[in-house]
Amino acid sequence: MKKAVRGHAPDADALKERDQDLLQLLQSLLGDEIQSHRHGMDMLELVIRPESASSVSRLLRDSEGLEFDYLMDQTAVDWLGRREIRFEVVYHFYSTKHNRYLRCLAPVPESRPEVSSLYELYKAADWYEREIHEMYGIRFAGHHDMRKLLMYDGFKGYPLRKDYSMKGRQPLIGPGSRQES
């Protein structure tokens, strides 16, 4: 039986060929910062260290030939029970000049959930990082404002972590509210 392929997924070999020169450029510029790389189904993926996310992004943004000037998305994944390093922060970059995409993955251990902030480089990272911090409890070193973005201030816990209790109910705070049962 033929495996279902998503809508316009390009051919894997064609993608590999397309990203070959990008990969060479990245390897020459970043060197040891790249822990490993992978040709994903839609774009090139780099695994980087969480503490160097900011410096790597600066190189990606400012280096000639790369110019990844647009942070498309930033999110996190909880690999509870599936991987040794529990969290992973995912960055999607896009270069408007070269029409190229790049995905960076930063594995973050549960014992020290901290990543360097991209806020100084991309203003878009401001709310992305606040949301990740609120939902996964990952801190961003160098971010100017780590208040909650979507939930109210009294909310406890990190709801998008896989071990957050689904049936947990938190009391509603504020004027006139009664306890939620």
């Binding site: 979507l150 109210y152 909310f155 504020g174 004027p175």
Partner: peptide
């Protein structure tokens, strides 16, 4: 949503 509850009140 819970965040909206207070403004609504």
């Amino acid at each position: 949503v819970k965040r909206m509850a207070q403004p609504l009140r």
